[in-house]
């Protein structure tokens, strides 16, 4: 317990504080090495309200009807959850926190529909990151669970599948980036004949914003589904077979067994891996960086990539500010997730 804490503490507090300070300053090179000038919240201001606003948050336009509908649904849901909390007799402090959280969520969704579900709008790096995280996470979990279920069936050759399914995770993310650059290349990549056969020689998915984002997400899903797979597989293997067996013998259907026995037993570990992948997913960088360098335009640029591009040119202040805004975003999303989902399904939070 304590050694672990000490190691993490030792290597995390210092960078954390230094980054916070950097995000409030500008770094320049000087005779003695480098100089750090304190400039206050300028970096944050640039990102949120200044010249980098369209890059970071996006170009906001009036939402389309779909956008309005999504926004309305979220507002209703939040309002409903809040009234439930009021009726449920939550203490004033809890209510206040919930109100703040709810308002943040509503605000975020409002920006989101203005950027994504609006003609002429364009999502900035914040929303591109959120899109990567939530779409990627959902598909990875569903695929990972399905594959883990299949791989626990008593089928000949399942050991082969188990090892094969782990493979993508073992390739260095940098390598996966280059590999997908090779695969998605439509002038010399392996899918050229496929496109040619479909009469789409001139087609390329890396010049269309959504095509490029999908290419990035496919790479991400390809690489990280194995993580979901291996953890869920281990959890499934840890289940008591006899309960399942007894239920099946007693005439329960497989879907009933899944719904009432397997799924509840998997929930604790599921929420954990979703949280871990969520936190890791927010840091997505290698795929967009290598596949498209954030292009076309800024369509595939994630927040970490934005921080990285600034960092590469020694704009450490703005890079740290972006990283800190990412930290705040992840903290909000993760806290909400832990409070709303994880505490409900597990006792070990």
């Amino acid at each position: 317990m304590w050694p672990a804490l000490a190691v993490v503490l030792f290597l995390s507090i210092f960078p954390l504080v230094v980054s916070l300070y950097l995000s409030l300053s500008r770094l320049s090179f000087a005779k003695s090495g480098f100089e750090i000038t304190f400039i206050g919240p300028t970096n944050y201001q640039t990102l949120l309200f200044g010249g980098e606003r369209t890059h970071f948050i996006g170009v906001l336009k009036t939402p389309s009807p779909i956008g309005w509908a999504i926004f309305a649904v979220v507002v209703v849901l939040v309002g409903w959850a809040f009234t439930r909390a009021v009726r449920g007799g939550v203490r004033p402090l809890g209510l206040l926190l919930r109100a703040i959280g709810g308002l943040l969520l509503v605000g975020l969704i409002w920006l989101f529909v203005q950027a994504v579900f609006a003609p002429g709008g364009r999502p900035g790096t914040v929303f591109v990151t959120l899109i990567y995280v939530f779409i990627g996470l959902t598909i990875q979990y569903v695929l990972g669970l399905g594959l883990a279920m299949l791989a626990t069936q008593r089928l000949p050759g399942r050991r082969f599948f188990r090892v094969v399914f782990l493979l993508p995770m073992m390739i260095t993310p940098v390598g996966v980036g280059y590999m997908f650059q090779m695969l998605t290349d439509t002038s010399k990549g392996p899918f050229l004949p496929v496109f040619a056969a479909l009469g789409m020689e001139g087609f390329t998915w890396v010049t269309d914003p959504w095509g490029a984002r999908i290419a990035v997400m496919i790479g991400d899903i390809w690489q990280w589904t194995p993580f979901m797979f291996i953890v869920l597989l281990a959890a499934l293997e840890g289940l008591d077979v006899e309960v399942t067996e007894a239920a099946l013998v007693d005439g329960a259907s497989r879907s009933q067994v899944f719904r009432y026995i397997t799924l509840p037993a998997l929930l604790p570990v599921s929420t954990t891996i979703v949280l871990i992948r969520m936190i890791e997913g927010f840091k997505i960088i290698d795929l967009p960086n290598i596949l498209t360098n954030g292009g076309p335009g800024t369509a595939t640029e994630s927040m970490t990539l934005q921080a990285f591009i600034d960092w590469r040119t020694f704009n450490l202040g703005r890079s740290a500010a972006t990283a800190y805004l990412l930290l705040i975003l992840v903290t909000i999303v993760a806290t909400a997730y832990v409070n709303l989902v994880r505490r409900r399904v597990t006792t070990t939070v």
Binding site: G295, G297, T298, R312, F314
Partner: peptide
Amino acid sequence: QEYQQVDLDKALAQFLAGEL
């Protein structure tokens, strides 16, 4: 590097992609 690789390069990519 910041003049060229960040500001100019990004704007060029956005121009080519039709964002600007």
